[in-house]
C-alpha cells in the first residue's frame, strides 16, 4: 500500500453538472494546500473536472440520484486524487484518449487527464464500482513539509 500521506478532502457529491463548480472549488483548495502553483492548480482542477464529467455522462448516464466520492491526499512529493463511483465495471478498452490529428468535438477529456496527471489508474472494486486514482507530482520548489501524516 503506497503512503497516502495527509487527507485533504473526503466528500460525496451528487453526480450532477450543477455540482461541478463545488468540485472544482474543493480540488483547487486542496491543490493550494498541497503547494501547487497557480498554473498547476488550474490544470489539476481541469483534469478532475473532466473525470467527474465522464462519470456523470458515461458511468451514470446523467442519473441525478447517483453520487461520486472525491478523496484527496497529499504527501510531500505528490497529491493523490480519487473519484469513487458505484457504477458497473468500466470497459477500460473503451476509455481512450483522442488522437490530436482527429479534430472532432468530443473525446478531449481523457486526453486532458493523461496530459495533466503524472499517473492515472482505474481500480475495479469487484463489481461494486470503480475508482479513478490520479497522481500529480509536486515540483521540488513547491513542496511543503506539512503534507505528511
Amino acid at each position: 500500500m503506497p503512503d497516502t500521506g495527509k487527507q485533504l478532502v473526503d466528500v460525496s457529491l451528487p453526480a450532477q453538472t450543477g455540482h461541478m463548480k463545488q468540485l472544482r472549488r474543493l480540488v483547487r483548495e486542496a491543490a493550494e494546500q498541497a503547494g501547487f502553483s497557480d498554473n498547476d492548480r488550474d490544470d489539476i482542477v481541469l483534469a478532475v473536472d473532466e473525470a467527474f464529467a465522464n462519470i456523470i455522462k458515461h458511468a451514470y448516464h446523467f442519473d441525478p440520484d447517483r453520487e461520486v466520492r472525491l478523496v484527496v491526499f497529499c504527501t510531500e512529493t505528490a497529491m493523490i486524487l480519487e473519484l469513487h463511483d458505484d457504477a458497473e465495471s468500466i470497459d477500460r478498452s473503451a476509455v481512450k484518449s483522442r488522437s490530436l490529428d482527429d479534430i472532432s468535438p468530443g473525446g478531449l477529456g481523457v486526453y486532458f487527464i493523461h496530459q495533466i496527471m503524472d499517473e492515472t489508474e482505474f481500480i475495479d472494486c469487484d463489481g461494486k464500482g470503480n475508482i479513478l486514482r490520479m497522481v500529480k507530482c509536486i515540483k521540488e520548489r513547491d513542496r511543503r513539509s506539512d503534507c505528511t501524516q
Partner: peptide
C-alpha cells in the same frame, strides 16, 4: 474564466 472539454467541443463543432 474556465472552459472544459465540453466547452472546447462547442467551439470545434461551430468551426466545423
Amino acid at each position: 474564466t474556465y472552459i472544459d472539454s465540453s466547452g472546447i467541443a462547442s467551439l470545434v463543432e461551430g468551426y466545423q
